[in-house]
Amino acid sequence: MSETPLHAAAAKDDVAAIQELLSHGAQIDARDNSGATALLVAAHANQIHAAEALINAGADVNIKDNINDSPYLYAGARGHLEILKMTLAHGADLKSTNRYGGTALIPASERGHVDTVRTLIEAGVDVDHVNDLGWTALLEAIILGDGGQRHQQIVELLVKGKANVNLADREGVTPLRHARALGYQEIERMLLAAGAR
Results as ranks from 00 to 15, higher is better:
53 A>S: 13
73 L>G: 03
103 T>V: 07
59 A>K: 00
56 N>G: 15
61 V>A: 06
108 A>I: 03
18 I>S: 07
20 E>I: 00
89 A>L: 08
64 K>Y: 00
33 N>V: 09
68 N>G: 01
36 A>R: 15
26 A>D: 13
66 N>M: 08
103 T>A: 10
55 I>V: 13
59 A>Y: 03
77 A>K: 01
101 G>K: 03
84 L>Q: 13
99 R>P: 00
35 G>E: 03
41 V>L: 03
83 I>P: 02
28 I>G: 04
17 A>D: 14
50 A>C: 12
31 R>K: 15
32 D>H: 05
16 A>W: 04
33 N>P: 04
46 N>H: 08
102 G>N: 01
39 L>P: 04
97 T>V: 15
40 L>D: 11
55 I>F: 07
38 A>T: 10
96 S>E: 15
17 A>N: 09
16 A>R: 14
84 L>F: 04
88 L>F: 06
63 I>S: 11
17 A>V: 13
25 G>D: 07
78 R>I: 03
94 L>F: 01
33 N>Y: 07
104 A>L: 03
55 I>G: 01
94 L>T: 02
85 K>S: 08
96 S>P: 05
102 G>F: 01
29 D>E: 10
81 L>E: 14
21 L>C: 10
61 V>S: 05
89 A>Q: 11
60 D>N: 15
103 T>W: 02
95 K>G: 10
67 I>K: 05
96 S>D: 04
91 G>I: 06
66 N>D: 15
73 L>D: 04
90 H>G: 11
75 A>T: 04
43 A>D: 06
72 Y>A: 12
50 A>H: 02
24 H>R: 08
23 S>H: 01
54 L>V: 08
93 D>R: 05
30 A>W: 00
106 I>N: 03
95 K>R: 12
63 I>D: 12
98 N>F: 01
90 H>P: 07
39 L>K: 03
17 A>R: 14
36 A>Q: 14
65 D>E: 14
89 A>P: 03
45 A>M: 12
86 M>S: 06
80 H>R: 14
33 N>F: 10
74 Y>S: 05
58 G>V: 08
77 A>P: 01
85 K>L: 08
45 A>Q: 15
40 L>M: 08
28 I>Q: 01
95 K>H: 11
58 G>Q: 04
73 L>N: 10
42 A>K: 06
46 N>I: 01
26 A>Q: 07
86 M>I: 00
42 A>W: 05
88 L>A: 09
80 H>F: 07
89 A>H: 02
70 S>N: 09
108 A>R: 02
91 G>E: 13
26 A>M: 12
44 H>D: 12
68 N>S: 13
53 A>L: 09
27 Q>D: 14
38 A>Q: 09
76 G>K: 04
32 D>T: 03
15 V>Q: 00
60 D>L: 02
52 E>P: 00
45 A>D: 13
74 Y>H: 14
82 E>L: 09
42 A>I: 10
98 N>Y: 02
65 D>Q: 07
81 L>Y: 04
98 N>Q: 05
63 I>Q: 05
63 I>W: 04
69 D>N: 15
87 T>H: 11
76 G>W: 02
41 V>E: 13
21 L>W: 06
102 G>D: 01
85 K>Q: 14
66 N>T: 10
20 E>S: 14
88 L>M: 06
69 D>Y: 09
92 A>K: 00
48 I>N: 10
100 Y>V: 06
